[in-house]
Design a protein around this nucleic acid. Sequence first.
DNA 1: CAAACAATCATACTTTTGGGTGATGGATAA
DNA 2: TTATCCATCACCCAAAAGTATGATTGTTTG
Lengths: 141, 141
Amino acid sequence: MKKIIILYGLSLAALLFLMQWLQFGFIIRDMSLEFYLGVVAVVFTAVGVWAGLRLTNSKTKIILKTHFNFNEAEYTRLGISKRELEVLHLMAQGFSNQEIADKLFISLNTIKTHSANLFLKLEVKRRTQAVQRSKELMLIP
Amino acid sequence: MKKIIILYGLSLAALLFLMQWLQFGFIIRDMSLEFYLGVVAVVFTAVGVWAGLRLTNSKTKIILKTHFNFNEAEYTRLGISKRELEVLHLMAQGFSNQEIADKLFISLNTIKTHSANLFLKLEVKRRTQAVQRSKELMLIP
DNA sequence: CAAACAATCATACTTTTGGGTGATGGATAA
DNA sequence: TTATCCATCACCCAAAAGTATGATTGTTTG
């Protein structure tokens, strides 16, 4: 990351030196100021794209793997409750309704109610689909 | 994507118009050419970074999603058959055993056999766990 | 060729899941 | 304070999933 910044500084310096050198030449007065500005703009756009990609490429991958952004918008839009989300999490981890019930210290019937409500809200028919869909919607990692 | 290119062109045009306008002003001669070039360079680096991220952000995600490296090592190590893998895929897509049977034109009982074998090989008890595990092992996307 | 394996299917049985309905207590909002 | 929503639970029934066992056919491989 620091290399990128150093390289960028060097590019800027190189530009200035180039300009200095060109002042002793004869080309500088043959072209308009706009032309030079345009060239510099295009070149440094390219530099920017390159630097931007360099800086974010490695980060992007890590972000996508480790950093999970909960989709609050969909969560509220679908009207899913906290408890239901909790059940959904355990469901996604492959637990049976009975196991979920044991973990949350509530009855199996309650889990069934929660899951049934979840399936309604997620518009799915099976728990596998619910897990799939809620992952797509970024409700669970 | 096209919007980005259009916006970039507009930025360039804006720069030229700004220069044209400044020629009638008084600021242009107070500062050195190098200064302007530096400013333009920095600004267009920023534009470049922004445009670069815009252009690649969606692509990066797609690449990460579509590019899936099948873990052949685990596949052979666990001794999973082609047909079983096929069933696993459909299972992961949230299909019921009956639906999978219909898709593959084989009996429901056969699917049950395949899935039972899968659960043994994957060392899991339920289909949700099988899906989870096989995703971890990079057997399915 | 015989053994091993993959794919197919069956039958029978148990467990899990899902659908529908209704009920209760508590919190919260109109 | 009444209405609404959430969380809880129960009961019943049906469907789906999973377990166990055994059998047949075709392919592959030592």
